[in-house]
């Protein structure tokens, strides 16, 4: 293809977009909405699985609160004994003085009101496999085996919920976004097919005056690409605005469960991923649509 033809075909694509104003707007709107939904779900899933992976770290621990009259040596012996149990990764002894100091630092009003330290010594037991945490915690509750332990606190139900959530998010979210991707592709294909269908007489005329299939196809492909990319940029704008509001809202909740989970995503990733998806969807969608109507005659 000659250079002058290439320039012409680029210009063609642009003129088509401008002169089919309403149809272009409809296509652009569809692509934008579809990509916004797809992008929002991909992003949500990504963030949720980041949370799900982050949370269990706080729950892979069993706290053993010892009786007030247990001596420091007995506490240390117990610590070493538990450290050798199967399934236990590490044990830390938190002396009551240290726990009190920590509390004073984090909740000064509370400690002032209490005056005296009511806290017992504490053993923090980290388990190797989170799935076994309940079984291990159950052993510590046996009064005859661990007479010095007054109270056993494990994440219990919460751990199971978090683990389940992590799995559900991955499976359901993964297949949902795959489905959504296909739906978006189909939606865009259908919209572009409509534009191409509306121009089938035009396409026939072009063929009859001697235009090659490539000559007819290229502007239409460029049109699809344009709609995909511009739709993706609009969708990114919408998503980033929404994300800002959502994170403000989440921060305003001040929930201890939703701490600052660091994200691998920077704001630049959103338009980058969406533009790539949009370009792919636009090109594939218009290619499929054109193939349907560009029969040699």
């Amino acid at each position: 293809m000659r250079l002058s033809s290439l320039g012409f075909l680029l210009h063609e694509a642009w003129l088509n977009i401008r002169r089919n104003g309403l149809m272009s707007l409809a296509t652009l709107g569809t692509v934008t909405v579809a990509l916004t939904v797809l992008g929002a779900s991909l992003w949500t899933i990504f963030r949720l699985s980041e949370y799900a992976q982050f949370q269990p770290r706080r729950f892979d621990r069993i706290d053993l609160f010892l009786l007030p009259d247990v001596s420091r040596e007995r506490a240390e012996t117990l610590r070493d004994q538990i450290a050798h149990l199967p399934g236990v990764a590490r044990v830390r002894l938190i002396p009551r003085e240290q726990a009190w100091a920590d509390l004073q630092a984090s909740e000064p009003l509370l400690t002032e009101a209490l005056e005296e330290n009511p806290l017992p010594d504490k053993l923090e037991v980290e388990v190797r496999d989170i799935a076994q945490i309940q079984a291990i915690a159950h052993n510590f509750r046996d009064q005859t085996a661990y007479p010095d332990v007054e109270r056993v606190v494990d994440a219990g139900e919460a751990v199971r919920v978090m683990l389940g959530l992590a799995r559900v998010v991955k499976v359901v979210g993964g297949s949902a976004s795959a489905g959504l991707f296909i739906a978006t592709l189909f939606l865009v294909y259908n919209t572009i097919r409509l534009t191409v269908f509306a121009r089938r007489r035009e396409i026939r005329t072009m063929q009859l005056v001697g235009a090659t299939p490539g000559f007819i196809r290229l502007p239409l492909l460029l049109e699809g690409l344009f709609h995909g990319v511009v739709g993706a940029l609009l969708a990114s704008g919408i998503l980033l605005l929404c994300a800002r509001e959502v994170s403000r809202f989440v921060a305003s909740l001040r929930s201890p469960l939703i701490g600052d989970v660091p994200s691998l995503l920077s704001p630049w990733h959103v338009p980058a991923v969406l533009v790539a998806l949009g370009a792919l969807i636009g090109l594939v969608g218009s290619y499929l649509a054109i193939r349907r109507f560009l029969r040699p005659i």
């Binding site: 035009e202 026939r204 005329t205 063929q207 005056v209 001697g210």
Partner: peptide, 17 residues
Amino acid sequence: PLFRRRLGIVFQDFGLL
């Protein structure tokens, strides 16, 4: 397409774009 470029065709329905 190459063959058609060497013809001039006036269509009954004009066939304008």
